[in-house]
């Protein structure tokens, strides 16, 4: 049996303090943060503190570093947060920070692996996320793995001098599509 932490391209592992320099680089790159909630520059100090605060994944914050199976190269991160144990519902956040791994199926594989972990190991019933309306690439990935569009928070985001809609999507237990057809 393959490891619960592994997909076909990537592996989830706990974040380590040594990851901070790469995260610092990614999350100060406007191309990476365009579709993320971040809007201010990050200091190396705050990035180090963040990594240390999330280096013990657990039910309260299941945060992972994403690395390639092939070369164990750190390419991004994924987090299941804001978990309400009574409702068994979590919010998901994901970022593939290494731009050379965009459009190669790594985001899709990360989503499948993290959601499978959430259902199979954390006993979640629902995983929800928000995606900015103009982020077509991410929406495509989320729909491919089974997320359903359930709503639109109109003009909920202000960035780059304009308002933008924020879409709400969710995946219920049993809806995750693990098949790897393109």
């Amino acid at each position: 049996m393959t490891s619960i932490f592994e997909g076909t391209l990537i592996r989830l592992r706990a974040r380590e303090p040594e990851d901070a320099p790469l995260l610092y680089q990614w999350f100060n790159d406007p191309e990476v943060t365009e579709h993320l909630a971040m809007r201010y520059p990050l200091s190396m100090k705050s990035e180090r503190e963040f990594v240390e605060s999330v280096s013990s994944p657990g039910y309260a914050h299941a945060g992972f570093a994403v690395e390639t199976l092939a070369e164990s190269r750190l390419i991004g991160g994924v987090d299941l947060i804001n978990i309400r144990p009574e409702c068994r519902c979590a919010s998901l956040g994901i970022a593939i920070g290494d731009k050379s791994f965009w459009d190669g199926g790594y985001g899709t594989d990360t989503m499948r692996t993290a959601c499978h972990f959430g259902f199979a190991m954390m006993n979640l019933h629902r995983i929800e996320l928000e995606v900015y309306a103009n982020n077509e690439r991410a929406r495509h990935v989320y729909e491919k793995v089974g997320f359903v569009l359930e709503g639109c928070r109109r003009q909920a985001l202000y960035k780059y001098g304009r308002y933008q809609d924020v879409l709400v999507m969710s995946l219920l237990e049993g809806e995750l599509r693990l098949d790897h057809r393109p």
Partner: peptide, 8 residues
């Protein structure tokens, strides 16, 4: 008491 939410 619910020591681990995962097990419910």
């Amino acid at each position: 008491r619910v020591p681990g939410a995962e097990n419910r």
